[in-house]
Amino acid sequence: MSALLDRLRARLRRLLRAPTVPFDGFTLVGYRADVPKGMIHALLAGDYEGPERNAIKAVVRPGDRVVDIGACMGVVSLTAARVAGADNVVAFEPNPAAAAVAADNFALNRLPVRLERAAVGAQAGTATLAIGDGSWLGASIGGNYQTTVEVPVRAIAEVIAAYQPTVLVLDAEGMETDILPACPMQRLRAVVAEFHLAGVDPAVIDGLRHHLGAQGFARDTALSTSGTMVCTEVWTRIPAAAATA
C-alpha cells in the first residue's frame, strides 16, 4: 500500500509541476525552467543515485571529510553532509546549470556544502564538457552531446592537498580512469567510485581495481554493485594489523 501511495504522490507532483520535491528526507528543487524534466522524473522515481547514497550512509562517519567529484544536483553531497556535517563536505560540479541547482538544494536544506564549480582531472587546465538536453546524467568531458561548455579543471593532487578528505566520492563519467591513478591516497579511509564500463577495455577497469588494492584498500562486496554499463564500487582501507597479519 505504501508503494502505491508513493507512486500516486509522485504522479500528482508531476501533474502539478511541484516547485520542490521530497527525496530521502531532503527537500529538493523540483519543476522549473532551468531543470531538465528527466532529472525531476529521476528523483520522483525514488532511486536516484541509490548505490552511491547507500554507500555514503554505510561508510561516512561523523567528522569525516568528504570530497564529492561529479556532484550534479548535490544529492550525494547532502547525504554525506547529513552524517559528517556540511562544513566537512566539498562538492565539485563542472556543469554550470547543475551546480546552480546543487547550490539551491544545499540552501533549501540548510546544509551549506562548499561548492566548487569545476571538473577534476589528473592535471589542472580547462576542458570541454558535453551536456545532454533532457538530462544532466552522463554529462562528460569529451562526450558526444551537442551542447558543450568550457570548464575549469582542478588537479586531483591539489584537491586532496587542499581539502584532505578521508572519503572520496567519484562519479566523473569516465574520468575515473585519469583521476584514480593520479590521486594521493595516504589520508583516504574509503573510496566510493562509479566505474563506467561501456566502450572501456576491461583491463583498464581491472587496472584501477589493482591500483586500489595496491594502495591498501579492499572492495566491500556487500556495498558494491555490478552492471554491464556502470558499476558502483566501495573500497575501504585495510587496517594495518590486518594487512600485516
Rank of each mutant, 00 (worst) to 15 (best):
D87V: 04
N88G: 05
N88M: 02
N88H: 13
N88R: 14
V90E: 00
V90K: 00
A91T: 09
P94V: 02
P94A: 04
P96L: 11
A98K: 05
A99M: 10
V101P: 04
A102G: 10
D104N: 10
A107R: 14
R110T: 06
R110H: 08
L111W: 01
L115A: 11
L115Q: 14
L115G: 10
E116R: 15
E116V: 15
E116F: 01
E116I: 11
A118W: 11
A119W: 11
V120G: 11
A122E: 15
A124F: 00
T126R: 10
A127N: 10
L129S: 06
A130P: 00
G132D: 07
W136M: 08
W136T: 10
S140V: 02
S140A: 12
S140W: 03
T148V: 14
T148A: 05
E150V: 15
V151G: 12
P152A: 13
V153C: 10
R154E: 15
A155Y: 13
A155G: 13
A157K: 10
A157N: 03
V159C: 06
A161R: 05
A161N: 09
A161S: 13
A162I: 03
A162V: 01
Y163R: 02
P165S: 01
V167I: 13
V169R: 07
L170D: 08
